[in-house]
Design a protein around this nucleic acid. Structure first.
Lengths: 227, 227
DNA sequence: TAAGGTAACTTACGATGTAAGGTGGGGGCA
DNA sequence: TGCCCCCACCTTACATCGTAAGTTACCTTA
């Protein structure tokens, strides 16, 4: 009844696509075998005909998103460009994908093995630097310095909503004042910046401006070392 | 029998200390309420008298490690120092703590709220930069650029053991050659660097050298912008 | 039409977090 | 001294999860 959409016969790809859609709309904790199966109009155990275990499902979800990044960044930007421009464009394109899947960093960090696709992806970035005259040593260090930025995100500590704030959000004025006294610099900075509204982008707070600032800081530093 | 060590009457602190010890020795997946209780010579439900839920336990574990970082970095390095030297010393001290608790980055990333201690900690770093003449804007950007480095770790993609490599580690020569052909630059870099053995430090591969290189890259770039 | 395999379903088990209520003993108060 | 109560721990039980084992329906092929 209720839309027995499963006329098509289920497959690894259909399962993975449904999983990504489910996680996008309801979060990673909603991704259970039973729930995913229900979304597909099927029983939980049927998924095991196409995937050996839940870990494999999660691996597949990661790989699906990686493929999306590959596709988004594949538009080889023609050569003749500055190495910085090429890398910049690629990282920012990856970031657009990650903004659609803010749960990806957390999921990726739980994978025990690195998907082969990641190696190929980083190989391309490495190639750009080698072409630009980087030594292997410097390029190696650069890859480490980039961290996860090639995939479009950064490890952000300040993202989960807000502080552990006491009780409801109706924190008393007194409490706030006491807090500000404990962290005078942060308080002053927030006052000075006012942080125009909030930019609650990625689950890992990842404002476009901050991302680009950090990226340029690294790129310019590397350019100086390259010379 | 077997050492009914629970002569002391259990407390939030004792529970948290036992939890940290358990995770240190057997990994985060070993931290279940029943197992933790058993380690304490107690039944699972007894823990709930001291903690409202498992999430609170995890929060407490995080806070325990943060306190350890605070203690390790509290040695106020006296003033008169270069701002870069002060920050460098602090981040590297934090890293020493994180090396003892390689599971911390992953756990921290699952917390929904930021522990207040983190704010105070970052406030101190911010203070160093403000003292050095940073504008609030630049200091703000710098905090984002640092990411998790103040806590002593970086988001590392290349850490989980190795590749998703096919089957056993006895990958055939032919397979290896094919792989190398798919990622020529990585293969060449590994050949050039040989990566003297491995430095399997953090769960987030985080060699001391790479960490310091990245940190100096950021610090030098910021120093240039500060002037 | 019979056989066989493919792709689904049913049932059940062990692990986990935790709600609900039980228990025992030590300290406060009469 | 005797009584009571409540603190800190225990017992039992349940919902949810991943998944092992076995079953059924259908489609293809002979």
């Amino acid at each position: 009844m209720t839309a027995k959409a499963s006329r098509t016969p289920l497959s690894r790809e259909r399962v993975l696509a449904a999983a990504v859609a489910l996680v996008d709309s309801e979060g990673i904790q909603a991704l259970t075998m039973r729930r995913l199966a229900a979304d597909l109009g099927v029983e939980a155990m049927s998924l095991y005909y196409h995937l050996p275990a839940k870990e494999a499902l999660l691996d597949g979800v990661v790989e699906t998103v990686l493929a999306e990044i590959d596709a988004a960044t594949a538009g080889s930007p023609a050569n003749g460009d500055d190495w910085r421009a090429r890398i910049r464009r690629q990282f920012l394109a990856a970031r657009q994908v990650m903004l659609r899947h803010p749960w990806m960093p957390g999921l990726l960090s739980t994978r025990r093995t690195i998907p082969p696709r990641v190696f190929a992806y980083y190989d391309g970035i490495l190639g750009v630097m080698i072409d630009a005259g980087f030594s292997y040593r410097l390029a190696h260090r650069a890859l480490h310095a980039f961290g996860s930025m090639p995939l479009g995100f950064v490890q952000e500590i300040f993202s989960p909503g807000a502080a552990d704030g006491g009780a409801e959000d109706g924190a008393s004025e007194a409490e706030l004042a006491a807090l500000a006294q404990q962290m005078p610099h942060l308080a002053a900075m927030m006052a000075a910046e006012m942080h125009d509204s909030a930019d609650p982008t990625l689950g890992w707070c990842d404002g476009q401006v901050e991302f680009e600032f950090t990226l340029d800081l690294l790129l310019d530093g590397l350019e100086r070392l390259r010379a």
